[in-house]
Amino acid sequence: MPVPYSARLNDFRISLPMEIRTLLGQMAEQNVLISLTAPRGITYTTTIWEVDRLKGTLCLGVEPSGRHLDRILAAEELLAVGYLDKVKIQFDVHDLMQVRDTDGQSVLTCRLPRELYRFQRRSHFRVRPLPTPAPVVRLRPYPESPAVELRIIDVSVSGVALLMSGRVPLSTGMQVAGADVELDADTRFVANLEVMNVSPLRQDVSSSRVGCEMSGLSAPALRALQRFINQTQKRRRAMAWADL
């Protein structure tokens, strides 16, 4: 007899408040992108700014040029999905509203979830490069504009996240050809970028996290990128063990 879907989900359900807050706190620290999805496929991308245990709330960022925010706020059902490395985190969103925080910034708040689900899903690891030497991408937002240099926040074999100041005009849907990606002295290549999302950073409201999909990499570039990701994982693992 088939096992009901709800019963199969029990293996992935987390209901301990401390474990829930820990996972959400890790997502906040790593500026993990969160997709809020309403019925009929309406989505809104944000990040967790704060996990407030005392108030029992989550604080989420508001993208200035974000689409569908009004429809997301009016939705009766909302699902949040984000990823920690290869782990998919999913939970229902309740009582979402837009408010002003103590700094006067517009933010979203909702109740802390009473349960969430954790699934293994991603096929590609995403890693945060070590801060030195600083990994960067050099690109021209428009063919006629001067080149700009943006620091890399994290990278996978299919995409890259960049730190953007308010002066750099990148927005969702933009395509940038021929960007120079420099991860370290031995890992440099050219890629085409498509901006998938732009999310403000809580720790620096004048800056944003820009998630881009990469394409057009040569076979040697892909091999060098995979080698860089593997080496970065090993170095971070070794650093974590050294701190124990």
Rank of each mutant, 00 (worst) to 15 (best):
R151K: 14
A191G: 00
I229V: 00
P4S: 05
L16A: 01
E144F: 12
G211Y: 05
M18S: 11
T187W: 01
E29W: 00
E194G: 09
I48A: 08
V136P: 08
D70V: 10
A224V: 00
P141M: 03
A80K: 04
E50H: 13
G66K: 08
L108A: 13
F228R: 02
R188Q: 06
L108Q: 08
Q231H: 13
T45E: 14
M27I: 11
S158F: 02
Q175W: 04
L78N: 07
R237P: 00
D186T: 02
D92L: 07
T45Q: 12
S218L: 10
Y83I: 03
R40E: 15
Q98M: 14
R236P: 00
D154P: 02
C59F: 07
E29V: 01
R122L: 05
L225G: 00
T187P: 02
E19N: 07
P129C: 05
T45D: 13
P39D: 10
V99R: 14
L23F: 10
L33P: 04
L112Y: 10
F119R: 04
P169G: 07
R122C: 11
R138I: 13
R71D: 15
S171V: 10
S123C: 02
L201V: 06
L96W: 13
G211A: 08
K86D: 12
D103L: 13
K234H: 06
F228K: 00
N10Y: 00
D154K: 06
D180C: 04
R138E: 15
G178N: 11
N10G: 06
L244G: 11
